[in-house]
Amino acid sequence: MEKKRTTIVLFSGDYDKAMAAYIIANGAAAYDHEVTIFHTFWGINALRKQEDIKAKKGFLEKMFGKMMPRGAEQLGLSKMQMMGIGPKMIKHVMNKHNALTLTQLINMAQEQDIKLVSCTMTMDLLGLQQDELIDGVHYAGVAAYLADAEDGNVNLFI
């Protein structure tokens, strides 16, 4: 039997939306789907390494790099950000309810062989380089995404 397929475009760089994307992705993998998460624009920030990676960049790229969150746990909330208090509160509640953090969800996704893809075109725009992203990420564009999505049983844009 051919495996079913789920694809998710993660456009948002909000912590809560990225969590939703990764929970659905991990659930789909448990449903025995082949799963692809295609990260574009702000969604790529979820894949950034936390440490400051020295890379050769122009002025604007450096500025972008500084202004955008570096890694999953630095992302803000789509609602109730409250200058950073919101994320602290929600992480406290998540811990209480034994919910996985976004970082743990990403690790779980990699463990379940979910294909994490980063859009190379947006990486150029935002001045992000491959060294700055976590290991195991694939690099591709719209055609590669569509190749997965056209066979997709579940395709989401978050």
Binding site: G27, A29, A30, A99
Partner: peptide, 14 residues
């Protein structure tokens, strides 16, 4: 027991 979504299903699948 005590684990939140999606862990029960992910672990059951494993």
């Amino acid at each position: 027991k005590g684990l939140a979504c999606p862990m029960p299903i992910v672990k059951t699948k494993k």
